[in-house]
């Protein structure tokens, strides 16, 4: 279970203070709702460890994780865009998620190739992100997130701006993940996404 206890954050030079307090059970999807500027991204960045809270706690399975550096937290983030290293090809982008130095076992390489096939990206391994469409890029990003096998997925508008086909593919992937026990936090202003994926809602 992921728990946020009285998590409090403030941007430097701003008087406004953000407060978050909720919990999500393992294998559930929590949708975070709110208009732009209400702190959805801030929340996800806090959980990921890209921002440091002023006070409060983040717990995963009753263990505090808010003092851990980003790379030791049990989470993977997927943003609306810019998820990929633009100077590296698709295969390397995914591979770096499995081992940060690209020291991949044969099974891992195979898993990447299979994943690419299954998401309709077979043969795209050597392409650079700049040569892909938005939907293809998101699929690559999600595939990397999934192959990392971290128990929590932080999704920041992952389907915004994609065409209906691409949305459908990504929704399916996410549902599969949820079924396998992964916890999702989804920031989205899309009603349909939330209806299909979310088990509960949190309003900002």
């Amino acid at each position: 279970m992921l728990e946020l206890r009285n998590l409090c954050f403030q941007y430097p030079d701003q008087s406004e203070e953000w407060r978050f307090h909720f919990s999500v059970a393992a294998g559930h999807c929590l949708a975070v709702r709110g208009a732009s500027g209400t702190g959805k991204s801030t929340l996800l960045n806090l959980v990921a460890g890209f921002l440091a809270p002023k006070s409060g706690e983040i717990l995963w399975n009753n263990q505090a994780i808010h003092n851990l550096p980003a790379w030791e937290r049990p989470v993977t983030s997927v943003f609306q865009e810019h998820n990929l290293f633009e100077h590296l090809d698709v295969f390397t982008n995914i591979g770096l998620g499995l081992h940060p130095g690209m020291k991949l076992s044969c099974e891992q390489k195979l898993a990447i190739e299979q994943g690419l096939e299954q998401t309709g990206l077979g043969g795209f391994g050597a392409r650079l992100p700049g040569e892909l469409s938005g939907g293809q890029r998101q699929r690559v990003a999600l595939l990397r997130a999934i192959l990392r096998r971290k128990p929590v997925l932080l999704l920041d508008e992952p389907m915004t701006g994609l065409d209906p086909d691409a949305r459908a593919i990504i929704r399916d992937l996410l549902l599969q993940e949820k079924a396998s026990g992964i916890t999702l936090i989804l920031a989205s202003h899309d009603e349909e996404d939330r209806k299909i994926l979310a088990d509960s809602n949190w309003n900002l």
Partner: peptide, 15 residues
């Protein structure tokens, strides 16, 4: 953004 992602993936030091 890229730096954040690299941190999350543990791409540190030599990597």
């Amino acid at each position: 953004n890229t730096l954040n992602q690299a941190s999350q993936l543990g791409i540190l030091g030599w990597y």
